[in-house]
Design a binder for these strands. Structure first.
Lengths: 316, 316
DNA sequence: TCATTTACTTGACGGAGTCAACTATATAAG
DNA sequence: CTTATATAGTTGACTCCGTCAAGTAAATGA
């Protein structure tokens, strides 16, 4: 149903900019507080950051370190020399390029890093420990969101996964569908109510043998869903297909429809049918590509708009 | 319905700690990148931070600056001396304490700060500009969440406000109620479905003269809600009262119930009734305090549990 | 009145980080 | 193959950010 192209980039407004700046000032201080604890160690803050990188990644070169931590090449060179003198690291010249060498912590290096690591861990644990568990999760979720949005090359390893319905999903799907259609097509709150009604009925009369829902999840967030419900022995109905704007272009819509078709076939249905509206072109393309045929169209007035409803069928 | 005491603090698990640490490393780098742009100016980073504070707050003392920015007192003293020499600030000894003085930017100080401020503003604008508008808002919302959770003394100015229902609310309320009751009482997904059904019906048959919903919002987030629906000319029913755990203790539940009672009275109803379950003790206290009387109790099996339903009435 | 604390100042100092020049190797162009 | 250019890393020289400790003056408390 709601599937269309990625939204365009937009010039930010002042309130948002100020909020980001306020956050930056706040977090500058926050990081400063956390770093204070580490200052008592034999290593400077930057040395600790370098050790952290070395402890968690393999085969780094001096340039890698400088780039990823934003450090001056000369400074990195000196740091590494110091570490080498203390026997904390070992360097192996790369066969592919004799200018570079692969840097690794020695066992002594790991020993030196361990207490630093523990201090940092404990300090964050203390910070988190001040909050109740549910708030801890909200915090981490928000941090992940910030990080993913700001980090260009932070694409999740798993683009998305499909899972069955769980508590909280039907409310979320109701909300998102309601908001998306209101935003994109000006539909009123009766559409959101319709989604709520459909999902409530789905759960109440759920028959696992004949019906199923799929939730597409990405980084712990719901980014799409679809449902198959039983109309009769012969006919199943695909309902409420949607994909979040932020997750479009990954083939999630196509995949969800394929799952429906596979399920309907496996359960022996003869026909998979669906109802949609003509303005939802992106969804239509998916249905067409999957082999659905337009059966009939009829105008209707719903959700505060004049619309043209469409019934599509796929013979299984 | 769901109103109970604040949850306890909990020892954080390792995944959450690691996620926070990852975020700290990420944001250390992020702030470093943003700061690079400011380095070309005549002021050091810390000087710029001090100027920012002075430009945005009045009547600061040297100690205030040092405390809020986490700086050494000696260093602050020197910075201020330099600023004074450049005629960027003026100091007025406090009458209440001759050791302290109130620091203010001079017009020249404001002029010196303006380009710094603009650079920082533009840089953040560029950062945000890379994202589509909807993502910009998600980013800022997440940042606000992080800041509010970590900043002890960052209570919002307005504790909460009440507003009417809008698109997206019924899904959100459905989700949150479903999740809260699942978590706290082990109710299954049929409760969430029931909430969805009630809210769908509310919207579909909504009669503004006789019915109303209130949403409690705090910092742009829904933290509670309640609905009054018409049962007959004489009888109104209060439904779906809930307050987010994070927003409890602010009197939101009491306020929501009061709104319902006021509305029911104003519309000429004779009775306000409600159905709840005996295990929801915090909600019961609110009803009792508002004058509701327990009319009847009866056991029932719903949402996967054995429960005792209660009907409460308030004569208006 | 005297001891203690607080706000700020000042001298002395260290080391984190920068800049530019340099060597050695790799890559691209002709 | 030769030559020009780019990249990886090193090193000397330097700056100045920020810390530490000692000191002064005022405020507070006993």
């Amino acid at each position: 149903m709601t599937i269309h192209h990625q939204p365009d980039k937009a010039a930010p407004n002042k309130d948002l900019i100020d909020a980001v700046r306020a956050f930056n000032r706040f977090y500058t201080r926050q990081i400063g507080l956390l770093d204070e604890g580490l200052l008592k160690s034999a290593f400077s803050l930057t040395e600790a950051r370098v050790l952290y990188e070395l402890a968690h990644r393999e085969g780094l070169t001096a340039t890698d370190l400088g780039r990823d931590l934003g450090l001056d090449a000369g400074y990195v060179s000196r740091l590494l020399k110091k570490f080498e003198r203390l026997h904390l690291i070992s360097r192996v010249t790369l066969v592919s390029d004799a200018r570079q060498s692969s840097i690794a912590l020695t066992p002594a290096g790991r020993d030196a890093f361990a207490p630093l690591n523990k201090d940092s861990h404990d300090q964050v644990a203390a910070l988190l420990g001040r909050l109740p568990a549910s708030e801890q999760e909200r915090l981490v979720k928000s941090m992940r969101t910030v990080q993913r949005l700001l980090d260009d090359n932070a694409e999740p390893k798993i683009p998305y996964l499909l899972r069955p319905l769980q508590v909280g999903d039907i409310g979320w799907i109701t909300r998102r569908q309601g908001m998306l259609y209101a935003q994109d097509y000006g539909w009123d709150e009766t559409y959101e109510a319709l989604v709520a009604e459909i999902l409530a009925a789905f759960v109440k009369s759920f028959d696992p043998k004949w019906e199923r829902g799929w939730i597409a999840e990405r980084e712990g967030e719901v980014v799409g869903s679809v449902f198959v419900v039983r109309k009769s022995d012969q006919v199943a109905k695909l309902r409420l297909l949607y994909v979040e704007p932020s997750a479009r272009g990954l083939g999630i819509g196509k995949r969800l429809v394929e799952e429906c078709i596979g399920f309907a076939r496996a359960r022996g249905y003869k026909t998979l049918t669906l109802w949609t509206n003509d303005i939802l072109t992106a969804a239509r393309h998916i249905y067409q590509a999957a082999g659905f045929k337009l059966i009939e169209e009829e105008p209707h007035h719903s959700f505060g708009k004049d619309l043209v409803g469409q019934n599509w069928d796929l013979e299984l």
